[in-house]
């Protein structure tokens, strides 16, 4: 199923853009930085064409897709969570290619600041597009009576938490995101660049409880999982320190 996503649903606000560029507190009163962010937001609105594709999968189907990824960690978050999920949906979202082309053009023309800020806007927006699809899947499952009051749908992506990025190949074969203009290069990278792929795992909140002490956690500095776990299970959840990505 192709999912139309509005630009307004994914566009971050100016403060989020500046925060993504690590511009903090003392710079609030700098009009040139505000203008830079506003200009990037206008460029994004002109170029972005967010769209997604979603397909439900059975646990058995996903097990096959997951097993098809070369180099998965022996233990991984996805491998632990998906057998407990009551509903699974494969997804790919993209912002289209025009924004990435504008970023590349900016760098080529030495307009580094504008290009870097536009890239930050697009990165944030791509993640929000995935979030939009995640929320819509969750709502649909609730409407269909497949997700109870305590239920939560969360997305997991190849390249993170032990699921090798090569997992995208099997996922693409099943989902055919070429229908929304997303393809994999020979090297296994998604084009357009600002695209996100993965699986949305839904079920009672407890299915997502993991302890982030997998071997790959030692070299991870993102700690996005800790933020999610705390959001799900409360701030007192023992998942280690929360360090910004």
């Amino acid at each position: 199923m192709i999912v139309e996503i509005g630009v307004a649903e994914v566009v971050p606000d100016r403060s989020a853009v500046l925060a993504a560029m690590d511009v903090s507190g003392g710079a609030q009163a700098r009009p040139h930085l505000d203008e830079l962010a506003d200009s990037a937001l206008r460029a994004f609105a002109k170029t972005a064409a967010p769209v997604g594709i979603v397909a439900d999968a059975s646990r058995e189907e996903f097990a096959e897709i997951y097993a098809g990824a070369p180099g998965n960690a022996p233990d991984s978050v996805v491998a632990d969570v998906f057998p407990r999920a009551e509903a699974l949906s494969l997804f790919v979202v993209t912002l289209g290619s025009a924004t990435s082309e504008a970023v590349a053009r900016g760098f080529a023309e030495h307009d580094f600041a504008a290009a870097a800020v536009l890239d930050a806007v697009a990165s944030e927006a791509a993640d929000r597009a995935a979030e939009v699809v995640e929320r819509r899947v969750e709502r649909r499952l609730r409407d269909e009576g497949r997700l109870g009051g305590d239920g939560v749908a969360l997305r997991y992506s190849p390249g993170y938490c032990g699921w090798n990025v090569g997992g995208q190949a099997a996922l693409f074969r099943r989902l055919e995101p070429e229908r929304i203009g997303v393809r994999l290069t020979d090297g296994g990278f998604m084009r357009p660049e600002k695209s996100v792929s993965g699986v949305i795992l839904a079920g009672p909140r407890s299915i997502h409880r993991v302890t982030p002490t997998y071997p790959f956690c030692a070299s991870c500095v993102a700690h996005g999982c800790r933020v999610r776990l705390r959001a799900l299970f409360g701030r007192g959840t023992s998942v280690g320190p929360e360090t910004p990505a």
Binding site: M21, D22, V23, S24, A27, H32, L33, L36, H110, D111, F112, A113, A116, V117
Partner: peptide, 11 residues
Amino acid sequence: IFLPEVLMAAR
């Protein structure tokens, strides 16, 4: 100063 300002200087 912050990264965008450094990049403006680089330009």
